[in-house]
């Protein structure tokens, strides 16, 4: 009787304990697995799993942003390419313009020039004035200088300077007492005209029997024409000022 009563009770307890054991085993297994996974996540990502979702959202957002930015980069790169092409074209144009400018500057007399040519030396007449003589007959006039210069231009001079003053488009010669005004500067005798151009042609033209040089020599002025293999003509040192004249529209 005792055994009969006792046996089911101990069996019941054992069953209860077995159930508890199963539950605890499941719980323990789950807990250990979870802890191991969490540790793994922390080890790999260095942050707790709670923040993963938030970070995932941020990641997606950032990826979308990145896509947009990549498109922008592509667009900007295209623009840059266009600009670079434009700049390259601009550089080419700039170079051409620079060359053109150089030519214009040379033509305007803004840069020193070098080359073969002739030197014409002129001076007042060395003959002493006798009483009653006109002093104009022994003084070299600006018209004489102008005549020589005209003959030089006519015989192919390309760059001319008188006593270091470059002859440019607006250069005029004027008489100021015993000196000559050139480029708003006084120049005094002896005059030294340096002309770059066809040496033979200029020399021959100056040496004509009915030329200005021959005329000056006939009046007793010492004129010396020398050829030179290499001469330098300085640049015009003044400035251009247009107060009244303005570039007109090109005629068609």
């Amino acid at each position: 009787m005792h055994l009969v009563e006792h046996a089911p009770r101990s069996w019941r307890v054992t069953r209860l304990q077995a159930a508890l054991a199963v539950v605890l085993a499941v719980a323990g297994f789950l807990a250990v697995t979870q802890i191991r996974n969490e540790l793994l996540i922390r080890q790999q990502l260095r942050l707790p799993s709670q923040r993963l979702e938030e970070l995932g959202f941020m990641l997606r957002e950032m990826e979308r942003n990145r896509g947009a930015m990549e498109a922008q980069i592509e667009q900007i790169r295209g623009q840059l390419h266009a600009y670079e092409q434009g700049a390259a074209q601009g550089r080419v144009q700039l170079e051409a313009l620079g060359r053109q400018l150089e030519v214009f500057r040379a033509q305007a007399g803004h840069i020193p020039m070098a080359g073969p040519g002739v030197i014409v030396g002129l001076d007042d007449s060395p003959f002493p004035l006798r009483p009653g003589d006109d002093p104009n007959t022994v003084i070299l006039h600006y018209t004489d200088l102008q005549g020589v210069l005209n003959e030089l231009w006519a015989s192919g001079a390309e760059a001319v300077a008188v006593n270091g003053e470059r002859m440019i488009t607006t250069t005029g010669l004027n008489c100021v007492g015993t000196t000559i005004l050139c480029n708003a500067k006084r120049i005094a005798p002896p005059y030294r005209i340096v002309a770059i151009g066809d040496t033979d042609q200029m020399a021959r033209y100056l040496a004509r029997a009915d030329g200005v040089v021959a005329g000056l020599r006939a009046f007793g002025f010492p004129v010396k024409v020398t050829r030179a293999g290499r001469l330098t003509v300085p640049a015009y040192r003044g400035s251009y000022r247009f107060t009244h004249a303005a570039p007109a529209a090109p005629e068609r």
Partner: peptide
């Protein structure tokens, strides 16, 4: 049971 579960988990 608990110990068994823990061991299984490991």
């Amino acid at each position: 049971g608990l110990i068994l579960g823990i061991i299984l988990g490991f």
